[in-house]
Write a protein that binds this DNA or RNA. Structure first.
Lengths: 363, 363
DNA sequence: TTGTAGGCGTTATCAC
DNA sequence: GTGATAACGCCTACAA
């Protein structure tokens, strides 16, 4: 018997700092109980919300006041140990650096916060190995559930595990993704309608399903228009402006009149390459991006692109996960729409007589 | 009976899924001990690295193999409870959506990962109240230390608490910040040298020290050049492209020949406003940004800006924190340099005879 | 070199 | 309504 109710012992090692608040988190429910003159379990009852109906209102208030005075907070490690749950979820993403992703994070974070969860972020750096490794580490307990953005579901995970996948369809799991197919189709429809025939594709080399979807849409739309997708210029690149700029050079040398880019970042790189070649957008070249990132309207000319709602995706993903963790029925899969935003980077193609290399005052 | 070494009892509730790995994290050190035919404390010894010198190599190997076979991972909640530390740090940022910040995060995350820490991310949404609240929640135990990016240090925190502040000098604490003063001074020096006199300032309205530093540098440089900082055009705006574009309009109407922007995002907004007014950069207007974000070289013309190393800041901040938590001596404060990157958006001012509103073919 | 026992702070199940 | 008591899984003296 280590300590008792009415013992004269000063509670723990509560150290007070300059401004009078406890500085070490050494206040336990036992201290609160002693301070309030009740038993420890009563304190527990009050704090876990199971008070009403079992503990008198007066007592509850007394406990709460004592807790406030002592600066008590339930210890999450102890809770997690006892409850077997940490009220934390992990979000694994391939690249925190992509601004698109941070908006997903924000959406998820908001939703999670509201439901009383914290989110642990893990950046896998587009490294499959590291991803698996981080995931393994996470399984040790710090997370109750997993939000996987574009990252593979690690093997060895039971089908009933609390996992929601983003931007990737995995059979038997819950997932949420954008309608990349529809988005890309809208982009090609727009370009085709403007009269473009020689439409190039600046594609992301990152092997993610969403990009396969875009490619599929491209082939379908082009074929339907009587064009051969295999004959049209295409280049792949990492999702970064400088890489895109490099890859876009050779692509532009094939003289397309329009380019569909898998990502606004790629479109930005393309702008740079076009500038180097003194090609004018949209006069010599129409460009369509994907994502509608912040900077899209700031480019010159403003970028026509497919607008997505990343915050919505984050929030939706969390909802699915939360439902899964708490055994609630929710939708199992959801597809979020994309919307074509026509700005200044697309126009009908100009029939050009002279080599477009000549420039200067030819407007 | 799925597996066993020597004891007849099947450990716990180990459920095996399709591919033969344990799917529920219900394997404890006791199971491992039983499986390996040793005591639980031996397992603990092995896993906490205190094995060598106290446990024979053969036994250690036996334990490790058993653990591997069972898919055992130490329960972090239990460890945290016992050890009083969670090996997690929290990173509080005002706005996850800012791409600059994600690079800080990546730097911190890398460093933390290496040292065996996970990072819990909290987005305060530029909301002081929410920041304090999140912080309070965090103090309940999930984090051993705090990395505060541009967010205030909450009151009631002892001076010896494990806190590292970024982009804000707080007396008595460890902090790391960029040399915003020097960066801004370099920008103004560059503009002044080019011959600009009517230099405007598109400033961030967010009340952060780094922006005060930039303003101070502006006043100093301008004064030294014999100019009156109070006479020169200045506007403030939120850090977002569209807000910046709105704020930049009136600023441009005051006819500056150059603008220093507190952030590349603001510069991007300024580009848009300049375009609306048919002002050419850099012919009619020189622009300098701050941060060297990804998109800076993709703007038309490529943006002259102050390059920073956000990953370095994240990593440095973690180092300071880690030192603090483990009682190691480290530098207490560090100032990271910024570097002027001259690209295409700055040029000597043109003496213009006619009102610059006239445009079209005036090149 | 290995095993035993006690407790970290909570929650939950019971008697009272 | 309220108060003991037993886990949750792990670490660490200390005993063997």
């Amino acid at each position: 018997m280590t300590m008792k109710m009415s013992s004269p012992r000063v509670p723990g090692v509560v150290a007070f700092d300059l401004i009078g608040r406890p500085s070490r988190q050494r206040v336990t429910s036992v201290d609160v109980a002693r301070h309030a003159g009740v038993s420890q379990s009563t304190v527990s009852l009050v704090f876990s919300g199971k008070g009403p109906g079992r503990v008198s209102e007066a007592t509850q208030e007394r406990v709460r006041r004592a807790a406030r005075e002592l600066g008590y907070r339930p210890n999450v490690a102890a809770q997690a140990l006892r409850l077997g749950s940490s009220r934390a979820i992990a979000l694994l993403v391939p690249d925190v650096t992509n601004p698109f992703f941070s908006r997903v994070l924000r959406g998820a974070q908001r939703a999670a916060q509201e439901a009383g969860y914290t989110v642990v972020l893990v950046d896998t750096g587009r490294d499959r190995q590291w991803a698996e490794q981080s995931f393994e580490a996470l399984r040790a307990g710090p997370a109750d559930g997993y939000l996987l953005f574009e990252v593979m579901v690690p093997e060895g995970l039971g089908p009933d595990q609390p996992v929601v996948v983003m931007e990737r369809e995995v059979p038997g799991r819950r997932w949420v993704r954008f309608d990349a197919e529809g988005g890309a189709a809208a982009a090609f429809g727009h370009l085709l309608e403007l009269g473009h025939r020689r439409i190039a594709h600046l594609a992301a080399s990152f092997d993610a399903p969403t990009f396969h979807l875009r490619e599929a849409a491209r082939r379908r739309m082009l074929s339907e228009a009587g064009l051969d997708p295999d004959e049209l210029p295409r280049a792949t690149t990492e999702i970064a402006i400088d890489s895109a700029c490099e890859a876009a050079g050779p692509l532009l040398d094939e003289r397309p009149t329009a380019v569909f880019c898998d990502d606004d970042l790629l479109a930005a790189g393309l702008y740079m390459a076009a500038r180097e070649r003194r090609m004018r957008i949209p006069d010599d070249l129409s460009v369509v991006g994907f994502d509608d990132m912040d900077f899209a309207p700031a480019l010159e000319p403003p970028l026509t692109t497919i607008a997505l709602d990343p915050e919505g995706m984050g929030a939706t993903a969390f909802e699915l996960l939360e439902g899964l963790m708490n055994g609630r029925r929710t939708r199992k899969q959801v597809v979020l729409p994309g919307e074509l935003l026509v700005r200044g980077s697309t126009a009908p193609p100009k029939r050009r007589k002279r080599p477009p290399r000549s420039q200067e005052e030819d407007q």
